[in-house]
């Protein structure tokens, strides 16, 4: 079984997903292209958490496998 994945996005950018969204492997998790870096989901799954981490100035997106 695939483990839960955590993706960190520089907070200059905005997340494109919300808690409860279903995402596909390779789907862009980032709303724009401000950073020139693509942040994609490494698995098919459901977004469990979208949290701002002020210390790192990053959004933390947690994705669980569809059948955890």
């Amino acid at each position: 079984m695939t483990a839960r994945c955590v993706i960190r996005i520089d907070a200059t950018e905005s997340p494109a997903v919300r808690v409860g969204d279903s995402v596909r492997k390779g789907q862009n998790l980032c709303a724009g292209t401000k950073l020139g870096v693509s942040y994609v989901s490494p698995i098919d799954g459901v977004v469990q958490e979208v949290r701002f981490d002020p210390a790192q100035h990053e959004f933390v997106i947690s994705v669980s496998p569809e059948k955890e």
Binding site: A11, T12, A31, G32, K34, F59
Partner: peptide
């Protein structure tokens, strides 16, 4: 208020 992004 309206927020258009969570980023900058």
């Amino acid at each position: 208020v309206h927020w258009s992004t969570k980023g900058h």
